[in-house]
Nucleic acid binder design. Structure first.
Lengths: 152, 152
DNA sequence: GACAATTCGTTAGCCTGCTAACTATTAGCG
DNA sequence: CGCTAATAGTTAGCAGGCTAACGAATTGTC
């Protein structure tokens, strides 16, 4: 039978919990017409000011091609602006528009609500533990996979 | 500024860790020509035998339309078979093909490897804690969102 | 027995992930 | 200076997530 317990796997719980989290977040954002990833873009821009696409992709831990289409939609909806970098003609600087600013205030409320809901019943210590354990798993998986004898 | 610490958010760690996990899993499965979700389908079928699509979607915690395309690809690749249910003409029973069986043995090895890598440095107690905390977050987010005054 | 409500699988349309490959530009080095 | 290498953004193509809406079949109810 070669059975393998998905229920017992960390990966299973990681998957279903994250899925649930994103769904809750996206549902909460529907009234404002944006998505989880779009809110994250606005979040980083609010924190850091203008960023290039590569920098933003780095902060969000996604690949640049993934970011391109997220930004395309946000630009289409008038939430962000792409501006050519004055010193490097390859780069484009991403900035928020005036239209996005009031949206951002709503998102912060939303995010706090979801976070509170997600961590309901968990003590501060437990939340810290959860983050620490997730951080360790993340770190473990960042390392290059143990391919037999890297050939370079 | 209305800043909101993505770094401090459970959602951030959930997102990046899960992404990393899926990427590691998919990378490891490339030699066998299948993906994480496809391996999960084979896993549940190995455990439970033939299942309808609705049952399978329930086990995998995804929506039926999402499953349809996953199964389409697996059927195209000859890994599974859709068989009309003899007692209910709406249902289709999903079963693995002979071609899929040797693949499944490989997947189990793979999955164990990834799981070991992900949990490297974590004690059994810490792994249990992680699963318990994830389970609680998942449970919290399953509840219907606190929409103001459900109107029915 | 007939009609309404429900369930099953599917399709269409949207958003998000990835890799590979391309163009344009900049950086590095002989 | 000039050529190679690296970098920034994009496109194309694939896989996976969702909701809304549909036809076919079954269930429930009067």
């Amino acid at each position: 039978m070669l059975d393998y317990d998905f229920d017992e796997s960390i990966g299973y719980w990681l998957t279903v919990t994250t899925q649930r989290y994103h769904r809750a977040f996206n549902d909460a954002l529907v009234p404002y017409g944006i998505t989880f990833r779009q809110s994250q873009v606005l979040g980083w821009l609010a924190l850091e000011g203008e960023l290039s696409q590569a920098e933003l992709a780095g902060k969000m831990m996604i690949e640049p091609p993934t970011l391109v289409r997220i930004l395309d939609r946000m630009e289409r909806d008038g939430l962000i602006r792409r501006r050519p970098c004055p010193t490097d003609r390859r780069r484009k600087l991403i900035g928020v528009t005036a239209k996005a600013k009031p949206v951002w205030a709503k998102i912060v409320e939303c995010a706090k609500g979801i976070r509170a809901r997600a961590t309901d019943g968990l003590t501060d210590r437990q939340q810290a533990t959860l983050k620490k354990l997730l951080g360790r798993v993340h770190q473990n998986l960042l390392l290059t996979p143990p391919t037999e004898l890297s050939d370079r």
